[in-house]
Design a protein around this nucleic acid. Structure first.
Length: 148
DNA sequence: GCCAACGTTGGC
DNA sequence: GCCAACGTTGGC
């Protein structure tokens, strides 16, 4: 399964991940998002989406370690985190407006994107076709193929 | 178990 | 800054 993770660039941006190479993906406080996090396997890829000012998919990360309990002083065990590593920065960001405009076309693979249908979800699965379509929109599908 | 009130996220 | 769409909390 492929994934799409959201972050506010002011909190943690993809550029920071590009420098860090690896980070702990934590702070998810939504049950549905957590359940998705638990399903991510090592080696799977996640699109990184910047909410707020950017509103665009900016890069790809790789799941480096599957979900494990987040150290939480109040309620240990309730929440999980996982590790991701830098994979690829898109040649050009794919904005939410661009995604919506493609999704509006008939027969578009992007019609069922949870990003559009459930805008508040911070971590969601994304199908192979959708994943490819977004990378193509970012002129980065070839680069991604080389990466594998 | 229902629902009103409130809080949060995120697009506009 | 506003508002829609959720999620959570607490009274009943």
């Amino acid at each position: 399964m492929n994934w799409l993770f959201k972050t506010e660039p002011e909190t943690y941006s993809f550029d920071t991940l590009a420098k860090d190479k690896k980070t702990v993906w934590n702070g998810v406080r939504n049950f549905q998002a957590r359940n998705f996090l638990n399903k991510a396997s090592k080696g799977e890829y996640a699109l990184i989406y910047h909410s707020g000012k950017d509103k665009a998919v900016v890069g790809v990360a790789r799941v480096a370690k599957e979900a494990y309990p987040e150290p939480d002083p109040e309620k240990p065990g309730d929440w999980v985190q996982l590790d991701i590593s830098y994979a690829l920065k898109l040649k050009s960001p794919v904005t939410l407006a661009a995604i919506k405009s493609v999704a509006a076309k008939s027969d578009s693979t992007l019609k069922n994107l949870l990003l559009i249908k459930q805008s508040r979800l911070s971590c969601m699965p994304i199908g192979d076709k959708e994943f490819k379509t977004i990378l193509e929109l970012g002129d980065s599908w070839a680069d991604f193929q080389k990466l594998k």
